[in-house]
Design a protein around this nucleic acid. Structure first.
Lengths: 238, 238
DNA sequence: CAGGTCAACTGGTTGGACCAGTTGTCTGGA
DNA sequence: TCCAGACAACTGGTCCAACCAGTTGACCTG
């Protein structure tokens, strides 16, 4: 028996999701005017307050411009949306999941690799110890891929914390969110194998960082994370 | 006479800003329970709907967990907030502006440099032409720094568009937003000079990209954008 | 003292009214 | 004929009041 917690979605969340999907998918084009709040409320069959809550969030995401007295207009999301919209992009099927996955993994490689370099330069001794410890708990290569996600995330979180760059830290959160939205199953299906869950490489990387070898650590991190990019790119080719 | 458009801030925006500031500044610690919506409404002197609109957005930002029946609790923003919170971070004075500026410029350097490499590999001919054109409109080194922000942003936007990576595109939007939140004046005060507005370097970079010299373009981009990082880091030292 | 019951919270949703800007039309005077 | 100004009909913004729906913990009962 496989039990999944029931998901109670608030109406405003539902409205938010649908509006975002309409915009990201292009069914609502940039500069189009949205129906008035009263009409939306009627069409969605919910109260106007729920519409307003959703609309405010769509605005926060940078997808519409709301003006009192005037109409609410759709903005060009490529030009105005923030990185947090990435996960919505996956949910709305606005782009092929594999492309989003590739873009995420590319950004992850680049950002994490640079964080590795900075970490080797700036991390405190306590942070270095945490990284070494995280690398130790990295599962053996033979483990189920799905079981390596957790330790892998732990490891890189330590590294990015060690870099002392909050933008990287917050960016990581967003990327992980986008990853989750696409679904781990998709990732597993790609057949990521040893090139992803390489315990020895992560141990070596931790040691390079602890030795303050910034350039060496950067190179290894880039190579290590590049494997995933290569794997996904290969899958796209097919 | 210097006229600035009046800013009519919606009540819920005001509430949102204050709540976020409370959380990011640490005055509301992680795992703390927020007062109930009815009490917040009374304390802020506004309607409960305004509180709800704000609270929903705080939730979307990943700063609180709302549960029907239970209390609304503060989350650890370092662990849960997305990159879009970066601009709030500046507004809330949760961290020194110069540190945020450094982190943003570091991320900008790393992401844009990688985008440059990808751009050289993947850009269409039309995109290459756009890049060359953008580089042409880059102002001469002697121009007021403030006047180079626009053309500079245009140039890099073209490059990142050419990379075909939506994550980079959206990330750029967020970073620019964070930059703007801190205020261009702060940036100007840093005394960024020729190392930032280097017309010749940008022209050279555009040519490298057009020649599909991925590695060469990557190197130059990293060096070029690294200048700003170095400038800000130096300012922090003092 | 373990168990269930229930009242008093919490957030979620609804309805309706009214305020406050924007826009376009229509009218009256130059 | 044309144009300024008034106005009506939108738009979003805010508020009040009520009730629904979960959660929690105190309290009572066996």
């Amino acid at each position: 028996m496989d039990i999944t917690p029931v998901t109670r979605t608030a109406v405003s969340d539902e409205v938010f999701g649908q509006l975002v999907a309409e915009i990201l998918s292009g069914r609502l084009a940039a500069d189009d005017a949205l129906p008035g709040e009263r009409e939306l409320a009627e069409r969605f069959g919910v109260n106007r307050h729920a519409i307003r809550e959703a609309l405010k969030r769509v605005q926060q995401a940078g997808l519409v411009r709301i003006a009192q007295g005037g109409k609410t207009r759709v903005l060009d999301w490529r030009q105005n949306a923030g990185l947090d919209t990435l996960s919505q992009l996956a949910a709305a099927s606005a782009l092929p999941p594999l492309q989003i996955l590739r873009d995420i993994s590319e950004m992850r490689r680049t950002v994490a690799a640079d964080a590795t370099r900075l970490c080797a330069q700036r991390a405190t001794d306590a942070q270095l110890a945490a990284i070494l410890a995280a690398a130790e708990t990295y599962p053996a290569d033979s483990t189920e891929i799905a079981d390596t996600f957790g330790p892998d995330l732990d490891f890189w979180t330590c590294v990015i914390d060690g870099s002392g760059n909050v933008a990287y830290r917050l960016g990581l959160n967003t990327l992980v969110g986008g990853f989750a939205e696409i679904g781990w199953q998709t990732v597993v299906d790609l057949g990521l194998g040893a090139e992803y869950a390489d315990r020895d490489a992560h141990l070596a990387l931790a040691r390079l960082i602890a030795d303050r070898d910034a350039e060496g650590a950067h190179r290894l991190a880039e190579e290590l994370l590049g494997r995933t990019v290569a794997r996904i790119s290969a899958a796209i080719e097919k």
